[in-house]
Design a protein around this nucleic acid. Structure first.
Lengths: 160, 160
DNA sequence: GTGATTGCAAATCGTTTGCATTCAG
DNA sequence: CTGAATGCAAACGATTTGCAATCAC
């Protein structure tokens, strides 16, 4: 399988896109930011700030946690990354997808993938009908099992 | 309007339901728990732990924050209250609705109401088709404007 | 009485802020 | 050069934990 390689290419392309976005917004092209962006884009799915710090330090050893947060905030404000909220209050991040979609997270391996399509319309309509609220935005996360974990772990419980 | 009164009645009924649930699970019926449960049920919508502490202390002045959290955890583990996660990592709580439904939160006044019905099925199906993930659970929050705020603030921009 | 429950105080942990230093353009 | 960006250290704030005192049954 060349999947890793594919991801690598994909990640590089994505990193380029994010860096271009930063440049387009008139922001400096610094080592720290490159490190964070690359750390973010080498992962096929989402990353926590701590993971980004660790991976980023492989590229730029001086990298500080605070810079990871600031860079992520900046990228998010530019719409270049998407923040995923965890129930425990922490966040993780992934490069923003091109089209509006949603995530599925594997409850065993924590892998998160994007899928396209958004059928929230009917839900919004019924919300409107029942409550009088007009819906402006929504946030949805699905949880389940990815194919690998389903195959591998049907018998076992989920890993913590 | 007697809506307040209605809520009062509704809240009392709901408080009774929660207390009954605790008793049914073999848990002690303590002052602290009663205070938290009542504080939770007098609100027509969700409450933060801090709000519950304040309201609860009106009933049981000794109430400590830690007890609010522990009681909420317990109620949640019994399926009697539902936890709502905020993007900033905090939580708020509301008595669990009878049927599976979702929430709409007003982006201006923060009021949250339930509505029934769950059209996630089609979304789960398309997730499965596109990603291979099987969906076991989901979490959805809708954001928009409640009728009052829409009426009051139609001319103004939305509050941040 | 006895184990569950409570509350105080201190700890935790992800995240943010103050401020002096360093870097990119 | 000069403002933007960084990093260290300290602050923050919601939530959790250790442990002794208290309460419900």
């Amino acid at each position: 399988m060349k999947i890793e390689k594919e991801f690598q290419f994909h990640g590089d392309r994505q990193a380029g896109r994010l860096l271009a976005g930063l440049a387009g917004a008139g922001r400096s092209d610094t080592r720290a930011r490159r490190a964070v962006v690359q750390a973010l884009c080498v992962a096929p799915d989402r990353s926590t700030p701590a993971e980004l710090l660790e991976r980023g330090r492989a590229i730029h050893p001086h990298l500080a946690p605070v810079t990871v947060y600031r860079t992520l905030d900046l990228l998010q404000s530019l719409g270049l990354v998407e923040r995923l909220h965890h129930p425990d209050g922490c966040s993780s991040f992934m490069p923003a997808p091109a089209a509006h979609g949603h995530h599925v997270t594997c409850e065993r391996c924590r892998r998160t993938v994007e899928f396209s399509g958004c059928a929230i319309g009917s839900l919004a309509r019924s919300a409107r009908a029942q409550t009088g609220f007009t819906v402006h935005s929504h946030w949805l996360e699905l949880t389940g099992l990815c194919p690998d974990c389903r195959r591998a772990g049907a018998a076992r419980g989920r890993a913590s």
